[in-house]
């Protein structure tokens, strides 16, 4: 590169009009040891840019990035804990809603009766209630016996 061209190129450089290729030529030229004193300021600028391009982050930055994109042990454990809690809750709810609950038993309140006549009337009523239920049961049993007899007849015929 001749000095005549160099001045033109440096003017273009200062104006922000050089191409990348022209700037690479300038960098190559100013990387040489001996440069006329009048160009010393340019030499410093290009020496600075050549040095700065060598700056790199710590070696461990890749490991830091990897750690940043991988869920940590704490987060993994937390997620497992949450998943386990949700599972237990869902199973409990399923059991609660699908298995029929024992009907709540209500017990008649115990009442002390002092009047014997009243006690007799209540006892009589209660016995009547029980006997009517037993009669129903006997009727049902008789009905079932009749059914069994019919089935037996059918089986014998076969």
């Amino acid at each position: 590169m001749g000095f005549k061209n160099l001045d033109i190129l440096l003017e273009k450089y200062l104006a922000g009009e050089t191409t990348l290729e022209e700037e690479r030529q300038l960098k190559a030229y100013f990387s040489k040891e001996d440069v006329p004193a009048e160009y010393e300021s340019y030499k410093k600028i290009f020496a600075f840019t050549a040095k700065e391009i060598q700056l790199t982050p710590r070696e461990t930055i890749k490991a830091d990035i990897k750690e940043g994109i991988t869920p940590s042990r704490f987060r993994r454990n937390s997620l497992r804990g949450i998943a386990a809690a949700i599972s237990i809750f869902l199973v409990s709810m399923a059991v609660y809603f699908t298995i029929p609950q024992n009907s709540t038993k209500t017990y008649a309140s115990v009442k002390e009766i002092d009047n014997p006549e009243e006690a007799y009337a209540i006892a009589k009523e209660a016995l009547y209630l029980v006997s009517s239920k037993l009669n129903n049961g006997a009727a049902k049993a008789a009905e079932s016996v009749e059914r069994v007899k019919t089935i037996n007849l059918y089986v014998k015929e076969k």
Binding site: Y13, L14, A15, G16, E17, E40, S41, Y42, K44, I45
Partner: peptide, 16 residues
């Protein structure tokens, strides 16, 4: 971009 580049380069050179 070019205006900012021009100003930056010119300033650094003049100060040097």
């Amino acid at each position: 971009v070019k205006v900012n580049l021009h100003r930056a380069r010119t300033f650094i050179r003049q100060e040097l």
